[in-house]
């Protein structure tokens, strides 16, 4: 079971909001400082390790840029959204950000609530309202990568890329 304090976002939160264009060419530390600077300035100073993002429809629409890495590097523990954009989802798997689709989630949580995510029962619960929602199951092989730090450790283990000190 994972608990996270909820930060709420709306529909169609795009990759350019999570990783603005001018920061594409900066270090991943600087990228993590730029998350939501155009739609929610100051958020990166408020978010704490283990917090949860609750999003609406098509979370992460946009480009292939590593926006999921920035979200992970901000300390976000997990992300729940009504639907998740396919490309953002790939990057979540590959960078080890726990991200799940959960129909009804945006109506079930207020900002500041706690979200309890259980990825064995595949449920998300709001202890304030005692409401429990079903979470769409992430296929096992993808879940392993998500929880195991993403694709880089797999490729290192198989001798396909050289290890690098520090995070990808």
């Amino acid at each position: 079971m994972r608990n996270g304090r909820v930060w709420k976002f709306g529909d169609n939160i795009n990759t350019d909001l999570m990783l603005p264009g001018p920061y594409l060419y900066r270090s991943s530390e600087q990228q993590a400082r730029a998350v939501f600077m155009n739609n929610r300035p100051g958020w990166v100073d408020q978010v704490q390790t283990g917090d949860a993002i609750v999003g609406g429809f098509n979370y992460g629409m946009g480009s292939s840029r590593p926006a999921a890495r920035s979200i992970r590097n901000c300390g976000v523990g997990f992300l729940l959204a009504e639907t998740i954009n396919g490309l953002f989802f790939r990057n979540a798997v590959n960078y080890g950000l726990l991200a799940c689709e959960c129909p009804g989630v945006s109506g079930a949580f207020e900002e500041g609530d706690t979200a309890e995510l259980d990825i064995e029962a595949w449920t998300a619960r709001n202890p304030r309202t005692r409401q429990t929602l079903k979470v769409s199951q992430v296929p096992q092989q993808l879940l392993e990568m998500m929880l195991g730090g993403g694709v880089y450790p797999v490729l290192e283990r198989d001798g396909l890329i050289a290890p690098r000190v520090g995070e990808p």
């Binding site: 480009s63 292939s64 590593p66 999921a68 396919g86 490309l87 989802f89 790939r90 990057n91 590959n94 960078y95 296929p139 092989q141 993808l142 993403g150 694709v151 880089y152 797999v154 490729l155 198989d158 396909l160 890329i161 990808p168």
Partner: peptide
């Protein structure tokens, strides 16, 4: 044809494979 992320590209180039959730 599908746009993928940087890590997917490393995976495809080194293993010759990719995964897709079928929609």
């Amino acid at each position: 044809a599908r746009g993928v992320g940087g890590p997917d590209m490393l995976y495809a180039v080194t293993t010759g494979k990719a995964w897709f959730r079928v929609g």
